[in-house]
Design a binder for these strands. Structure first.
Length: 434
RNA sequence: GGAGAGAUGGCCGAGUCGGCUGAAGGCGCUCGCCUGCUAAGCGAGUGUAGGGUGUAAAGCUCUACCGAGGGUUCGAAUCCCUCUCUCUCCGCCA
C-alpha cells in the first residue's frame, strides 16, 4: 500500500501503472476525497487549538478561584462543531483508506510488458524431460491404480477438489514436507515456523489478500463479532509475524520457512484442472519468507528462487523459470518468478513455485519496520516469499516423471531416507499399508 | 464457561478530588566534558504520525496518540460504557 502523500504526488504514474497491469484504476475519487480531507484537517486543527487554549485558560481561572462560566458557555458551541467535523473526517479517511488498499504495487523496471500468461518470458531451463518407451500416464491414473490417491472418496467426504491420500501416498507427501523443511532449515538458514492456519482480517489485509480478494478465501465464523480466514498460503501468517513492530539493528535479514496446508476457494476456475491434484481447495505447501533491508531485496529474490529450484534439482525434476509480465504479476508483487515443473502426463509445464519480491508494499500495509542503525529512524523492510515448494504438485511431478512401465513409481534417491529406504511404490506395497 | 487483577514512552515505573503531564523518577541509548585504559562521575539530549512555515536540511510551530473504540465535560492517562489482550484461581477439555 502507498501512503496518501505518495499517491497525491504520483497520480499519473499510478494510473499508468494500473493500465500496464491490465486493470485501469481511476484516482479521481481519491483526489476529491484527499482535498476534502485536507480542508477538514485545517479547520479541525484550528478549532482544536482554540479549545486547547481556552480550556487551559479556564483551568487557570478555576485554580485562582475566578469566574469562568462565560468562557465555558462560549466553548460549548465550538465543542459541538468539532464533533461534527471529526465524524466527517473519519468517514472521509475511511473512504481514502479503502481506495489506497486497492491500488496494486508497481512492477519493477525489469518486469517485461505483457498482457497475460502467454507473454511471460522464459528465463532458464534445467534438466531435460524424461523419455518413456511407453505412453506416460497422468498422475490421477497412476495414483488410483496404486491406490495411493482416492479422488472419489475425497469428493464424498468434502466435495470436488478434495482428495484423500492413502498409504504410501500419504507417506510420500509427508516425506516431501520433511525433506523440504530439512533442506531449508539445515542448509539454507531458514527458521522453521508452524503458524496458525486461520488468521484475522487485519493479517489478511497486511499481505494484500484483503480487501480485494475476499472471494478467493474460505471464511470461518466464530460468532457474530468475530470471524477468521483460512490461510491461502503460509505467506500470510509468516510475513505478518513482525507486523506493527520495529526490528532493532542487526535483526535483518529474517528467513522463515513454514509448512502449512493452504485453502483456496478457486472461485472463477470452474472447469479448470478438474481432474487430479493440480487444483485443490486444500493443499500442502512449504513456504519461504524473507524480511530484508531494501538495498538487498533483489539479490535476495535471486537466492530465494535458487533455494526453491534446489529442491527440484535434488529431486531431479525438469523445470523452467519464467518472469511474470506486467499483465500477469500479482497485486502486491514488484517482481515474480514462477518455476514450472515438467509434467509428462499432461505434456506441459505447470507452476510449482512462485517467488516474489514485494519491496515495501506489504511492509507498509502490515507496518513492518526496522532500524538501520541504533537511534535511526525506522524504515519499512522489504518482504519476499516463494513456495519451496507446493507439495501436492511436487508429488504429482514425481508420480508422472518417475513412473515405470509396469505402473509402479520409483522414489527419488533423496526421499528414500524419508520412506524407510523404500525404492519403489507398487500396488502391493500400498495395499499392505492401508 | 465462572471469579478476580492488570494494560502508561526502548525497558521498568509514578500519575493526587479530571486542568499547570507528551507524561515525574529510574534504567538504557546518543553526544559532549572529565579521568593515563576500563569503571565511576558531570552536562545536554533521547517516541511516533500528520499539518503549517522554510529552496532544502536544521529550526520554529500546530494537531493527534497513555491497549482499542465510544460516551460525559469548556477540558480526560485520570470518570462512565463496550471490546481486545495478558496474568491468577475454579470448571471443562485434546
Amino acid at each position: 500500500m502507498f501512503d496518501a502523500k505518495f499517491v497525491r504526488n504520483n497520480i499519473e504514474a499510478i494510473e499508468q501503472m494500473t493500465a500496464r497491469r491490465g486493470e485501469p484504476f481511476s484516482l479521481d475519487g481519491f483526489v476529491q476525497l484527499d482535498e476534502e480531507n485536507s480542508h477538514l484537517r485545517t479547520r479541525l486543527e484550528e478549532i482544536q487549538h482554540k479549545i486547547n487554549v481556552v480550556s487551559k485558560k479556564i483551568g487557570q481561572l478555576k485554580r485562582e478561584n475566578k469566574e469562568s462560566s462565560l468562557l465555558q458557555e462560549e466553548m460549548k458551541d465550538v465543542s459541538a462543531e468539532i464533533k461534527e467535523l471529526k465524524k466527517k473526517k473519519v468517514e472521509v479517511e475511511a473512504s481514502i483508506q479503502e481506495i489506497l488498499l486497492r491500488i496494486p504495487n508497481f512492477p519493477h523496471a525489469s518486469v517485461p510488458e505483457g498482457k497475460g500468461e502467454e507473454d511471460n518470458p522464459e528465463v532458464k531451463r534445467w534438466g531435460r524431460p524424461p523419455e518413456f518407451d511407453f505412453p506416460p500416464q497422468a498422475h490421477w491414473d497412476i495414483g488410483e491404480k496404486l491406490d495411493i490417491l482416492d479422488f472419489k472418496r475425497g469428493a464424498k467426504l468434502a466435495g470436488a477438489r478434495f482428495t484423500l491420500y492413502k498409504g504410501l501416498g500419504a507417506r510420500l507427501e509427508r516425506a516431501l514436507i520433511n525433506f523440504m523443511l530439512d533442506v531449508h532449515t539445515r542448509e539454507k538458514g531458514y527458521q522453521e515456523i508452524l503458524p496458525p492456519f486461520m488468521v484475522n482480517r487485519a493479517t489478511m489485509t497486511g499481505t494484500g489478500q484483503l480487501p480485494k480478494f475476499e472471494e478467493d478465501l474460505f471464511r470461518v465464523f466464530k460468532d457474530e463479532n468475530e470471524d477468521f480466514f483460512l490461510i491461502p498460503t503460509a505467506e500470510v501468517p509468516v510475513t505478518n509475524i513482525y507486523s506493527q513492530e520495529i526490528l532493532e539493528p542487526g535483526r535483518l535479514p529474517v528467513y522463515f520457512t513454514a509448512y502449512t496446508p493452504c485453502f483456496r476457494r478457486e472461485a472463477g476456475s470452474y472447469g479448470k484442472d478438474t481432474r487430479g491434484l493440480i487444483r485443490q481447495h486444500q493443499f500442502n505447501k512449504v513456504e519461504l519468507v524473507k524480511l530484508v533491508e531494501p538495498e538487498n531485496s533483489y539479490q535476495e529474490l535471486e537466492r530465494l528462487l535458487g533455494d526453491a529450484e534446489d529442491i527440484l534439482k535434488r529431486l531431479d525434476l525438469h523445470y523452467r523459470v519464467v518472469t511474470l509480465c506486467t499483465g500477469d504479476i500479482g497485486f502486491a508483487a514488484s517482481k515474480t518468478y514462477d518455476i514450472e515443473v515438467w509434467l509428462p502426463g499432461q505434456n506441459a509445464y505447470r507452476e510449482i513455485s512462485s517467488c516474489s519480491n514485494f519491496e515495501d508494499f506489504q511492509a507498509r500495509r502490515a507496518s513492518i519496520r526496522y532500524r538501520p542503525v541504533s537511534g535511526a529512524k525506522p524504515e519499512f523492510v522489504h518482504t519476499l516469499n516463494g513456495s519451496g515448494l507446493a507439495v501436492g504438485r511436487t508429488l504429482v511431478a514425481i508420480l508422472e516423471n518417475y513412473q515405470l512401465k509396469d505402473g509402479s513409481v520409483a522414489i527419488p534417491e533423496v526421499l528414500r531416507p524419508y520412506m524407510n529406504g523404500l525404492e519403489r511404490i507398487e500396488s502391493e506395497s500400498s495395499t499392505r499399508a492401508v
